[in-house]
Amino acid sequence: MIRNVALALLLAGPAGAETIPEPSNYRGEPYRAPVPATLTGAEVIGIDEALALHDAGQAAFVDVMPRKARPEGLPEGTIWNEPLHQTIPGAIWLFDTGYQALAPAEEARLRDGLTRAQGGDADRPLVLFCRSECWMSWNAARRAVAWGFDPVIWFPGGTDAWTEAGRPLVMAEPVAP
């Protein structure tokens, strides 16, 4: 019996090789979970393509990783320092814009930030990312497609793939709300 289970596992392919279908709407919790290999209306790239685009300066890189909020219930007078966020060099950090549902401020931050990232060139590719296996970048890229931005490129490996490729990250400054 164990031999049959081992054979079945070998034939099934590598772990995580299951196909994740694109949902019909934006994805909610849990945001850190396996993601689809596709995003209708967008190009999906791996680390080699991301490095080439970045090194050539041919695209705007947009980080949608959430910003850490001050924990609720801290005693009065407690000093809280927001954790630093690291991102791909040259990327803009449009924090909190990858959730399933966006408040008007986050929606405006994403839409306006994408427009600014293109720098007046509506044909400049937008590369959206966060971390690997993170639905936030999928959601934000899907919104960009729905709003008519083109070309939209989704980089699902994000900062994890970036560092695994031996590339450094830099400290990010959030785009003002």
Rank of each mutant, 00 (worst) to 15 (best):
47 I>K: 13
103 A>R: 07
66 P>K: 06
91 A>T: 04
59 A>F: 06
40 T>Q: 15
35 V>I: 11
65 M>V: 00
85 H>N: 08
75 P>H: 05
55 D>M: 06
93 W>Q: 13
104 P>L: 04
54 H>G: 09
93 W>H: 12
98 G>T: 09
42 A>I: 08
33 A>N: 09
76 E>T: 01
54 H>M: 07
104 P>I: 02
107 E>N: 12
50 A>V: 04
98 G>L: 05
71 P>V: 05
101 A>M: 05
40 T>P: 12
47 I>A: 14
96 D>Q: 08
40 T>S: 15
88 I>W: 05
64 V>L: 03
87 T>V: 01
34 P>E: 05
74 L>A: 08
53 L>D: 11
96 D>I: 02
82 E>P: 02
36 P>Y: 03
57 G>M: 06
54 H>W: 06
51 L>E: 14
52 A>T: 13
55 D>Q: 15
108 A>F: 02
45 I>F: 04
62 V>D: 10
70 R>T: 01
84 L>C: 00
55 D>K: 14
87 T>K: 10
42 A>P: 14
96 D>A: 08
77 G>Y: 00
63 D>L: 06
75 P>I: 01
97 T>P: 06
98 G>N: 11
55 D>I: 01
92 I>V: 15
104 P>V: 01
98 G>R: 05
64 V>R: 08
36 P>H: 08
66 P>V: 01
61 F>Q: 07
107 E>L: 05
35 V>A: 14
86 Q>H: 12
67 R>G: 04
86 Q>P: 00
64 V>W: 01
40 T>R: 15
64 V>S: 08
33 A>L: 00
102 L>Y: 11
60 A>G: 12
38 T>R: 10
107 E>Y: 07
37 A>H: 11
75 P>C: 02
86 Q>W: 01
83 P>C: 09
71 P>S: 07
107 E>H: 13
62 V>G: 12
74 L>E: 06
52 A>F: 02
78 T>I: 02
108 A>P: 04
103 A>N: 01
40 T>F: 02
33 A>E: 03
90 G>E: 03
40 T>G: 15
87 T>Q: 11
56 A>R: 15
34 P>Q: 10
41 G>L: 12
34 P>I: 01
89 P>L: 03
90 G>A: 06
53 L>E: 10
78 T>D: 06
49 E>H: 14
76 E>S: 04
84 L>H: 04
51 L>C: 12
97 T>D: 09
39 L>E: 05
44 V>A: 14
41 G>P: 14
80 W>T: 04
64 V>T: 05
42 A>N: 15
60 A>N: 06
47 I>M: 11
106 E>V: 00
42 A>H: 14
45 I>H: 10
97 T>Q: 09
80 W>V: 03
63 D>N: 15
91 A>S: 14
99 Y>D: 12
69 A>V: 00
76 E>K: 09
40 T>W: 03
61 F>L: 10
38 T>V: 00
86 Q>R: 13
46 G>F: 04
86 Q>Y: 06
80 W>C: 07
52 A>N: 12
56 A>K: 15
65 M>Y: 04
97 T>C: 13
64 V>I: 02
57 G>C: 09
80 W>F: 02
55 D>V: 03
73 G>Y: 00
64 V>N: 09
42 A>W: 09
43 E>K: 15
85 H>C: 03
38 T>P: 03
89 P>T: 07
82 E>C: 07
78 T>P: 05
45 I>G: 12
